[in-house]
């Protein structure tokens, strides 16, 4: 494979890469700057030097609903992911091991790709009739529509990599197939379970569409709350910046930890490199 031996092309390549890194980082940096600008200076695009203040952060974390929204988002994502792992892991194992599930495997992928537009209407109507609009349960059910398939698909690739002889051995050692599954195979795919869980958590945490339509004051999630900072009055900008950062920082940290497992998970045992 060619590499940049020529110092000039090497310099250009490095420059291009740095440019990309800059393009990714700059929005975060600027939003952070905005979050520590005094409210009186909010929204001044030419301002780089000022005396920073934490007033926006204090305001948002102490005097707003944002902590409550975080709690909602967190609880919904956590429950969604736990249910998904509980139902998805045995299924992914079955898809990986048993013959006759080849097409079922791909129907999981199809479910994962289903546009929310077609599911939201029935969800809304059913929850409306059940008086469950503005409840966490409704949002969890809605999030299961994409987190459950994603988590299942994600895990198939990990189970595919565990040698079948491992459960054969356990069955010979005196365990049932199900015991072999949870005593031997599940521990062997622990990194995959973690990565799938984190991935599903991030997806649920990031969702706006379902949460927007199915939550209200009692169950509003963070993305919906952020969307509420839609007005661009100068005083609000700093708070919006804080809310954005609060939503973004945990997912960035989480997803960084699963980077090396992502490929296998997204490929789901279908992409053979």
């Amino acid at each position: 494979m060619f590499s940049f031996r020529n110092p000039i092309s090497r310099a250009f390549a490095t420059l291009a890469l740095l440019l990309a890194v800059f393009a990714v980082l700059f929005p975060f940096v600027w939003v952070f700057m905005e979050s520590i600008k005094p409210a009186s200076l909010g929204g001044r695009p030419d301002l780089w030097v000022f005396s920073p203040t934490w007033e926006n952060w204090n305001e948002v974390t102490l005097n707003s609903d944002v902590p409550f929204n975080i709690l909602n988002s967190f609880a919904i994502a956590l429950v969604t992911v736990l249910i998904s792992l509980l139902c998805g892991a045995p299924a992914a194992y079955a898809f990986s091991r048993f013959r006759g599930f080849e097409s079922a495997r791909y129907s999981i992928l199809a479910a994962e790709m289903m546009p929310p537009a077609i599911l939201i209407l029935p969800f809304f109507l059913v929850l409306y009739h059940l008086k469950l609009i503005d409840s966490q349960i409704g949002v969890i059910a809605a999030h299961l529509t994409f987190v459950l398939p994603v988590v299942t698909w994600f895990l198939i690739g990990f189970f595919d990599e565990v040698p079948r002889d491992l459960e054969n051995q356990a069955m010979i050692d005196g365990y049932t197939r199900f015991q072999a599954f949870y005593k031997v195979i599940l521990p062997a795919v622990r990194p995959g379970l973690g990565a799938a869980g984190v991935f599903g958590f991030v997806l649920s945490w990031n969702d706006l569409f379902y949460a927007l339509l199915l939550t209200g004051n009692e169950s509003r999630t963070l993305p919906v709350a952020i969307a509420g900072y839609w007005t661009f009055r100068g005083v609000e900008l700093g708070k919006m910046a804080v809310a954005i950062l609060i939503a973004v920082i945990p997912v960035l940290a989480l997803s960084h930890s699963i980077q090396k497992h992502l490929i296998r998970g997204i490929g789901g045992g279908a992409v053979k490199y």
Binding site: D165, N168, A170, D173, P187
Partner: peptide, 13 residues
Amino acid sequence: IAMVFQNYALYPT
């Protein structure tokens, strides 16, 4: 019975 597999099949965890 007991069986020894070609790839040993040791429980990694």
